[in-house]
Design a protein around this nucleic acid. Structure first.
Length: 104
DNA sequence: CCGTTGACCCTTC
DNA sequence: AGAAGGGCCAACG
């Protein structure tokens, strides 16, 4: 399975009200390169992948969110009942979700 | 085809 | 405590 597909799979595997980080996804997939994870989500063809549930290690949202910008991303997270520390940071202490590698 | 860039993170100085 | 460097690889010019 392509790396991208694994990223999409784990991202879709994130339950509602939960958020994960690029690093967690990268490590879960067996690599340190979180950039590919980010790039994969950016290259995401459509909303089939909830990239709004994927944030940076500090809980910061993506500066160049694919659909409608980080405003839409934040709105979706709020719809998921995810609490925000500020306009760009989610509460990882409450909503940090750790993905599980599909082939491990 | 080669070089640079990049939704990033972690370790060492 | 902060700064610098290493990693790993696809997409863009």
């Amino acid at each position: 399975m392509p790396f991208f597909q694994q990223v999409y799979a784990l991202t879709r595997s994130i339950p509602m009200g939960k958020v994960t980080t690029y690093g967690e996804l990268a490590k879960a997939l067996g690599t340190r390169d979180a950039r590919r994870v980010g790039h994969a989500l950016h290259a995401n063809p459509d909303q089939s992948t909830p990239c709004h549930r994927v944030v940076s290690k500090d809980g910061r949202l993506a500066p160049n969110y694919a659909f409608g910008g980080n405003l839409e991303q934040r709105a979706k997270l709020i719809e998921e009942e995810v609490t925000f520390l500020d306009q760009e940071h989610v509460d990882l202490k409450k909503h940090l979700y750790r993905p599980t590698p599909p082939d491990l």
